[in-house]
Design a protein around this nucleic acid. Structure first.
Lengths: 205, 205, 205, 205
DNA sequence: TATGAATGAGGTTTCATTCAT
DNA sequence: CATGAATGAAACCTCATTCAT
């Protein structure tokens, strides 16, 4: 009795990923055993292994969904017309991050583990690298739009600025997850302060 | 060989930590077995366990050393008189980070794993939280000095700005470790661009 | 082979317990390693741990079976109608003990280890205490029946007598196991001699 | 620096045995590590091993002391002139047992472990067997004295009776240690009840 | 004589994965 | 398609004992 509906397959996959996410958020990748996932999902070992051929594959699928979920949002925000100001863009994205941390899936809690895994699992590292690069490119393009709109100097190194902006997000994630004493609003204020600063070394050029 | 000198004990400890660091950098915390550490250190199981009573304790010692090493440097830079400009400060710290990544110990490669571990190991989490908070406080004080020196507006939210500045470092670490296409110099240029930007939303006040 | 019959599961359990009993009788609880049990049972580590979640649980199951096996027999003998004479009751129970010592399982050889374990393992101690108390109660009831039948004085402290009678069994077990120079028949003769004695101190009352 | 006084040696031995006894009473033979004994005695590994060449030897020395301590007392009581009545003899010995259980050394708490060990350690088994036999012989002689004094029938099987009497002690020990709801006085009453019983099968002869 | 650092085999238990049913 | 019993390598850690100092 093969011929199972596409929809059924997708439901099963989701069921597994939801269970795995719950477990991973609760205990971490390594402390979560496949048995935990079987129990949480209410599925048998064999069933789970029909949909994912290894634990790593489950982790990758989850990471992929998470990155995807954020990427779509980032793309939307950064592509808005007219180009949104720096502090608005960052503020909205960090808000999104908090909701991805506290919401049901709590997906964002997996981020540090995914970074760590990417360092030691080549295949996963390639994947994360690729997505991260693409993701960051959105910021570069955003800065180019700022430049074109005259909101940053015409000779701005847009790539460098994109990297710096993108680089603020992991720092927010870590402070939010580990210390927990930061809000999107405060982070936004901090960014405004930096952008208002004149505390730069004399132009080296 | 009983009645051993204090120095001997310290050398043993270092020998273990060096071996462990090498293993952890190579394979990650979880993929490194205690056997790996015994082999790398050339010591027996019993000997290693005389100095550290668990694998976690080794990880903590390593993290502690690493955080300490960076903290001292950060403290030095941020406390300089006269207060160094933003881009200089960040530039020098990211340089330090690259040397802690590529140097012998390559300690910084452990950072993402430590963040991940801190999320799921309460004791370690407490420790990291505490150190991270103290570390970040240095940035807050630094911004206050900038303010006192008139290099940022007098009404700057120094705490928020400190958090934002501190928050740039994890982003640099991740890009440097995972993607590898960033340099302290480029990051510094990016920061200069942000600080020169006028792309802020109208003051909400 | 999933979806396995109840009977199959029971067979596995028995297979493990039989192997464990053999090992324990041969080498004792502590000298028997789990590897020994895997080898003796012909099962893998994982399989054994599916049925018992620790070595202690195996020991407890074995003790439980043994105590149960003896208790049923004791209950039968002591409840017989008409109430059996002292020497018959003790004689038959010690016979039972010898067959539980020499028979296939040789379960009774585990008794001293179980007593020792009960002293240092709280949970196991509670269990043994409870069973031993229930077991001993059968003797108390038996003496009450002797009293009601006029075979011991009407003012007999039946509880004390029950404890004394029950207390003869460990002494038989130890002499049988450790020295080996005693038989149920001889023990019975000894008991008859005590019961025929007039060597008591003057009634303290 | 050789030529250490005999007294010094003896003091060291005692120091070790006291520490070991404390540990064994607290945690049992197997759960007590040599490290525990080093710590409890305040001596170094090397020092302890100078006096006892193995853990087993310490256990044996302790068992030897304990058996000896009880044996001397038993010999005294059973050899009294005139020959003491049954219930007095047993009552006084069980009292002694309680004081050896609750006293400082709590030596008697080691008995079940010693019995268990004797079953699986041939050398120790031989030793215990020998001592137990000698010990029991005191009871046989005691019954012979009862017979000679006309306090038991002239045709009494004194050996059998001695074994039965001796056999009551382990049962007292176990009830006292494991259940804890028995006193020498109650045990004595129970014995009196048995000796007053007429509940014997018709003489098989 | 005394020290205590060192040994390293061996302890129990877990886990991702497979495959007969 | 689904089940879940079974595998067995490998994980972390302890321990009785030794011997250079």
């Amino acid at each position: 009795m093969p011929r199972v509906s596409e929809e059924h397959l997708e439901r099963r996959r989701t069921q597994i990923l939801d269970a795995a996410r719950t477990c991973f958020v609760r205990k971490g990748f390594h402390e979560t055993s496949m048995q935990d996932i079987f129990a949480e999902s209410g599925m048998s070992a064999g069933a789970v292994y029909r949909y994912f051929k290894s634990k790593t594959e489950i982790i990758q699928a989850l990471a992929s969904d998470a990155i995807g979920g954020l990427a779509v949002y980032v793309a939307d925000v950064l592509a808005e017309d007219p180009v949104p100001p720096l502090d608005d863009a960052v503020g909205r994205l960090t808000s999104r991050i908090t909701s991805m941390t506290d919401g049901l899936g709590a997906t964002m809690r997996l981020a540090p583990q995914a970074w760590a895994l990417a360092l030691y699992n080549e295949e996963f590292g390639d994947y994360v690298r690729e997505r991260m690069t693409g993701f960051r490119e959105l910021w570069v393009i955003y800065v180019e739009r700022l430049r074109d709109a005259g909101m940053v100097p015409a000779d701005t190194d847009c790539r460098a600025a994109g990297k710096a902006l993108f680089g603020m997000l992991p720092g927010f994630v870590i402070q939010y997850l580990l210390v927990g004493d930061i809000t999107p609003e405060e982070f936004r204020r901090g960014l405004r302060a930096l952008a208002s600063s004149t505390a730069l070394a004399p132009d080296p050029a």
